[in-house]
Write a protein that binds this DNA or RNA. Structure first.
Lengths: 347, 347
DNA sequence: TTGAAAGCGCTAACAC
DNA sequence: GTGTTAGCGCTTTCAA
């Protein structure tokens, strides 16, 4: 129709196809296809010629067309809740980086907590994404069934469901909670508290369970509990209630760093007390700001790299072999000792 | 081959197509297609029957196939640099939210600063994305040409190129810089400084230019300048250098909030001085943490919602009408007065 | 209002 | 090694 393909300077808006390349290179379209699929079935010279022509024409494989044939889109949907926790921002970038290295891409899918993830699953399935990674969001049982129905591999990241129907990777929150209890005990703290994140999230439950159980095992009184979500404001308010109780704690474990920083501010700014002199604070995540000099938060680091690599490994393996049973993997946390936990003996 | 489509309970892995639906609904495949395209050319009853069958079968339109026909993917690529600034996390979520409301989706594309955005453009073009939104990343002239060549609409967000070859939306950084200078002047500050972000980013240059020009206009001495990127550590170190100078400033404008918070900590923690008593600090962005009680940073808010809506409006309009000339839009900032700028008279 | 048929740009047998 | 051909699952004339 148009002969723009022959013009030397690129002109706008000419969708150039493999057939165009084939014509200009004097080969068949399938040979072009082979060349771009890195097939061994193309001679060195042909390949070179094809690539040359392709470059001139500005040809790029059309992945939608390829996907239609191969039934693979090269897309991984990442569905995430509307968290403001920068931890998940880091995770997302890492996921994208790793996927790009494999020639795949991330389709983002944020869901408001109000709406269910069910519609999200349908939407991403329309794109025939190869897999689903769920970050900081719940996936209803129904949604999970639907994924299986669609033959869509799923991995939950830092959230899991009890049923074991779906793969998941998480920080070993129970052990981490125990380690925190033990650490606080070893540093001679006596009265423990916990500022809770979202009550029914698996992360929150496990962190608390490990903490409480280890405390019990050590013969300590059960921790005081306040709070109810993962926000800054939650930490700031909860800590005030905690410090006004008669059995005022001398060590507070916060369900995540943002909350811990809120607690820090509540104590210092609102209460005019000192950390760690008056009370020790420990967080969870180790987001970038936790190591800032104004904060220096002692916290349990989630090893993002290991977690992401595990999650992707499971997901990609399942894409190749959809029949595999769900897999569940825990990665250890890592205690980052900074300045918000008193390390010396009790005064 | 398999008759799983007729089983009442969903069994795994049966890719169900419009043809399946058609067969079960006793219509032709094109009628199914019309029904799902919300065409008026389908009778009420037929449509209902089709939807019913589709629901039973778990049919979902295959967007890759549709895209192959329509030459539209419903995908917007968001390419972003590897910033840790949570501001862009907020922007990204908002973009996704707005796009989802329009039935479109975000394909993420983070680029390391090391590699050029050129390859990014090629990658996303393989998916025949409908448009490109560039957040916090540069786009080389060559990459921009390539987009035009591909007929791929682009909007830059908070970065622009001088040539005017490409659409952009940004905060009105120059005016914002001026407003900050004026505000600091009005509150009786005398010796001004600027902690710089990335030297050659348009945001940084404009913010500084507005600041410096307004200061000059007011007859103030030119601001001292330190720093060179948008990080926390930059602010923390730069402020120390600044405060050790003989002409110690009493007001410091930081190129963004993260840097301002670094400066805050540098002053308070490292230098043992007070804000705003010893020096006033003002930031730019108004990220969530700036309003935290431990920080209470006075800052210039970027009106994310307006900016995102503008950017998307421009982008989507250009998708429908690719011939439109590049458009350039500035949205005003909004001064958030909190507690890091001294408001009273000089002591 | 519906159906038949021709593509969209690619992959993957299959033949040579 | 390379070409031919038949799809992949949709949209979209064109007829009826």
């Amino acid at each position: 129709m148009s002969d723009a393909v022959n013009s030397s300077q690129p002109s706008a808006k000419t969708p150039v196809t493999a057939r165009d390349v084939a014509r200009n290179a004097g080969v068949s379209q399938s040979t072009v296809s082979r060349a771009f699929a890195n097939s061994q079935l193309v001679s060195r010279e042909t390949r070179d010629r094809i690539f040359l022509v392709a470059e001139q024409l500005g040809y790029q494989v059309n992945i939608m067309a390829r996907g239609l044939s191969t039934q693979k889109s090269g897309l991984i949907a990442v569905v995430t809740g509307s968290t403001r926790n920068p931890f998940y921002w880091d995770v997302l970038r890492l996921v994208d980086e790793r996927l790009q290295a494999k020639g795949m891409h991330v389709m983002l899918m944020t869901v408001k907590e109000s709406e269910s993830t069910d519609s999200a699953v349908r939407k991403v399935h329309q794109y025939r994404v190869d897999g689903l990674l769920v970050l900081s969001a719940e996936l209803s049982s129904k949604a999970i069934d639907e994924c299986r129905e669609f033959g869509l591999p799923v991995v939950l990241f830092n959230r899991y469901v009890e049923t074991g129907k779906v793969s998941a990777v998480a920080c070993d929150n129970i052990v981490a909670g125990k380690d925190i209890a033990q650490f606080l005990y070893n540093t001679n703290h006596k009265r423990f508290a916990f500022i809770s994140g979202l009550e029914d999230s698996s992360t929150n439950k496990d962190r608390f369970q490990g903490y409480r159980d280890q405390l019990a095992k050590l013969g300590c009184p059960p921790p005081l509990v306040e709070g109810g979500d993962f926000t800054y404001e939650n930490g700031r308010q909860a800590v005030k209630r905690l410090m006004l109780r008669s059995e005022r704690p001398d060590a507070i474990f916060c369900a995540n760093d943002i909350t811990a920083i809120g607690a820090l501010d509540g104590i210092r700014v609102d209460l005019g007390m000192r950390v760690p002199e008056d009370v020790s604070i420990i967080g969870f995540d180790d987001i970038a700001m936790s190591s800032w000099s104004g904060i220096e938060l002692t916290t349990m680091r989630q090893q993002t790299t290991r977690m992401v690599d595990s999650a992707l490994e499971i997901l990609l393996r399942r894409i190749d072999a959809p029949e595999l049973k769900p897999e569940f993997r825990l990665e250890p946390g890592k205690l980052m000792i900074r300045r918000t936990v008193r390390l010396d003996r009790q005064p």
